[in-house]
Amino acid sequence: MSPLAIVALLALTGYAIYQQTRRHEVVGGSRFKLAIIYGIVGFAVGGFSRPDSGVEWLLLVVSLGLSAAVGLARGRLTTLWAEDGRVWSQGTPLTIGLFVGLVVVKFAIGTACYFLQISDDGGFGEILVMIAVMVAFQAELIWRRAKPLGARTSDKTPAAG
């Protein structure tokens, strides 16, 4: 991974952490916006390779499963509350730690694969797509938790009460 890609990944990670420290309204229609952005950027910058061996396929499945599991955990642990006819969410230190942990684990897996000569062609885009998967699972679970509290389905839906 180039130094520029590492700086970009750190900037995107920092932005995601910042966003998690802020409270935001849960709106169903825009719940996948961040996941889509990360996914598009990830696919645009590349850094993917088709798995060539059983070990590479296993690593891909484990990595996707880990992203989904962390997303579900974060979706469950994110704080939700209703106020002024809207539903709000905010990350906690634990959800932020899970996010950072996923990025660190993904780097560690890639580094281990490189040194063990399992694969040397994963990159920046792959990490962003794994983050997109995590954010998508998290967003869906938060939405499912927020609907019974009265979350709006779109920005055009008036707030309750």
Rank of each mutant, 00 (worst) to 15 (best):
M1Q: 09
L4E: 15
A5S: 13
V7S: 12
V7E: 07
L9V: 08
L12S: 14
T13G: 15
G14F: 05
Y15D: 14
A16P: 14
I17K: 02
I17P: 07
T21Y: 06
T21G: 07
R22W: 08
H24D: 15
H24M: 10
V26H: 01
G28I: 01
G28C: 01
G29A: 10
F32P: 09
A35E: 04
A35P: 03
A35F: 00
I36M: 12
I36Y: 08
I37A: 11
G39T: 03
G39M: 01
G42T: 00
F43I: 13
F43Q: 12
V45M: 11
V45P: 10
G47W: 01
G47D: 05
G47L: 01
F48H: 00
R50T: 15
V55G: 08
V55C: 07
W57D: 14
L58N: 10
L59S: 14
V62W: 01
L64M: 09
L64Q: 10
G65F: 00
S67W: 00
S67L: 01
S67A: 12
A68K: 00
A68M: 02
A69F: 02
V70C: 07
A73N: 08
A73M: 11
A73D: 12
A73P: 10
R74N: 15
T78I: 02
T79G: 12
L80K: 00
W81Y: 09
A82L: 03
E83V: 05
G85T: 09
G85A: 06
R86L: 10
S89P: 08
G91V: 04
L94I: 12
T95H: 04
T95P: 08
G97E: 04
F99G: 12
G101S: 07
L102W: 09
V103F: 03
V103S: 02
V104W: 04
V104I: 13
V105Q: 04
V105A: 08
K106H: 14
F107K: 03
I109S: 14
T111M: 11
C113I: 12
F115I: 11
L116V: 10
L116R: 09
I118L: 08
I118E: 07
S119Y: 00
G122P: 04
G125D: 05
G125A: 02
E126M: 11
I127G: 13
L128N: 03
V129T: 05
M130I: 14
M130F: 13
I131C: 07
A132G: 08
A132N: 06
M134T: 08
M134N: 10
F137V: 09
F137Y: 05
Q138F: 07
E140T: 09
W143K: 02
G150C: 01
A151L: 01
R152P: 06
S154V: 06
K156M: 14
K156Y: 12
T157Q: 11
A159L: 02
